[in-house]
Design a protein around this nucleic acid. Sequence first.
DNA 1: TTGTAAGCGTTATCAC
DNA 2: GTGATAACGCTTACAA
Lengths: 330, 330
Amino acid sequence: MKQKENAPTMKDVAREAGVALGTVSKVFNSIPVGEDYRRRVEEAAKRLGYQVNSYARGLKTNRTCSAALILPNVTDPFFAMLAQEVCSALAQRGYRTILSTTAYDPEAEQRCIQMVQQNKVDGIIGLTYTPDLDVDPRLPYVSIDRYFSPCVPCVSSDNFGGGQLAAEKLLELGCTRPLFLRIGSKVPGESDKRGDGFESVFRQRQMNCISLRLNDEESYAPFRDFLSSRIEGGRLAFDGIFCVNDALAIQIRAMLLELGLRVPEDVQLIGFDGIRRFAQDGFYCSTIVQPVARLAETSVDLLLREDRSNLPSLVCLPVSYAAGGTTLEP
Amino acid sequence: MKQKENAPTMKDVAREAGVALGTVSKVFNSIPVGEDYRRRVEEAAKRLGYQVNSYARGLKTNRTCSAALILPNVTDPFFAMLAQEVCSALAQRGYRTILSTTAYDPEAEQRCIQMVQQNKVDGIIGLTYTPDLDVDPRLPYVSIDRYFSPCVPCVSSDNFGGGQLAAEKLLELGCTRPLFLRIGSKVPGESDKRGDGFESVFRQRQMNCISLRLNDEESYAPFRDFLSSRIEGGRLAFDGIFCVNDALAIQIRAMLLELGLRVPEDVQLIGFDGIRRFAQDGFYCSTIVQPVARLAETSVDLLLREDRSNLPSLVCLPVSYAAGGTTLEP
DNA sequence: TTGTAAGCGTTATCAC
DNA sequence: GTGATAACGCTTACAA
């Protein structure tokens, strides 16, 4: 229980090197020190296998070089990519990642924040579904995909632009009877703009665009009912479907096939996210790809920014389109 | 230097509650204290929004309530599941998870360990590919899927048993011409036993079993060459293939289809791991399912065990078979 | 330049 | 039971 196999401390190093404690500290903080001393300290440290205790250091400096990442889970491919990239981006800056998963549970989300604040991290990057999260304003917080307030920076993909892009692509590919499908949390989030962007393109062209938006629904059944009710003479009322994310697009494709419709010949399908099975694989479906690495880097950038007086409240990053077999590419 | 913005400390709480510092500490450590005092302290703490600083506590107690998890990445579905479960298991015990990803780079792996030791975590759970990792023997370490030495507990699935199970299943399903396919690191690991178990079943029955094992190969091309060279008159020399993991099984299936062979009609295929696209989805292929949650729980158990004098050096957890469309189920 | 000493927020050991 | 007080390992004025 008690790991009293005392690890060497700075004091030990100082004694071993025959210098003062402060000198050792200076060496480990890259503060100029006599070349002779430096070598002696470094050698002594290596001999003893000394490592600075960053908690003791943090206690003194109020910086712990660690940040928390809060996600619903890490198994959904998009969250997995995000975790991966955030973790790398933080590591690149010499920061550790404390990972917390919440399973979409507001209580767990709040508990995470609590826990993490207690742990005196230097900041939090959170992708959460609680609208009124109680987070210490002294602690840097960056939100992904959910806007809280002007003083909490939110990083997201250009969801609106992505929706537009999907619409333009479908138009380009010859679709004239569009449909937007959405399922997800009823808590408003940036991703709601995907449908808005999609619809705006058709509205602008005075084309009709149908939408079906489901909140906190357990199953995809309503989509099936809706779709099958819109089939007449073996022909679907829509020829281009935009799904709020790839997970839904995959389900819808399977559903359409079951209903006797061919994808992409009868209906073209575009998802959102850009998930893959393995990093080297192709996409599951034609999709609007989120720039996950840039999302992560931007979040980390904002989180670790020294000057916190002038932070943007919302940063949108450009998305791109990728064909993935559910559209009729020329 | 002295930020007045600083979070309240025990001293503040003590002053606010009109008690001594030590009393406050006792309250927060569930050490018996007068009911009257306890209430006063708790109220004062709530009023001030006080949270114990666990780094300061850790400095004193040598326990930080956090453990490190080292994985190659968190995007491969199996690693993602593992990360998820380890993170939950640790959280359940009141431990934080520090996540480090290494991209299979031995240097990164060593760097992680270094970093993490510096951070004075209470232990490390690692799935690594460096045979001679240099880890402080004072720090509890649990290895997943790789055996290091008797004093470093290793947790893995019953890989040998899983291989046997795959063989028995294929036999049961009528296969008589088995093949084992493997690709991966040349560093020996527990997962090597999958093929051994598979082969042992056929050896015991004095049946022939062919194996193709690739080390650190970049591409799957050698498999394609091998397979196409074993087709005669449109018929493959094998009717049951066991792949070392699902990722490979998925590739092999695609390859077989391209070669004009039907799965499972002409060739049956079993993978290993039990990965899915989303938690609610089915498996990609028929597979030997690893008990990921139990793997995680066992690792955490072993890591946090108080009495470290009598730890097992290898724990194998039972796997199970699941049909996933690449076998001809009765 | 180098050494010294005063904390950082907690816990733990004592007298009381 | 309560309340000073000494660590814990480190940084950082400040003194030498």
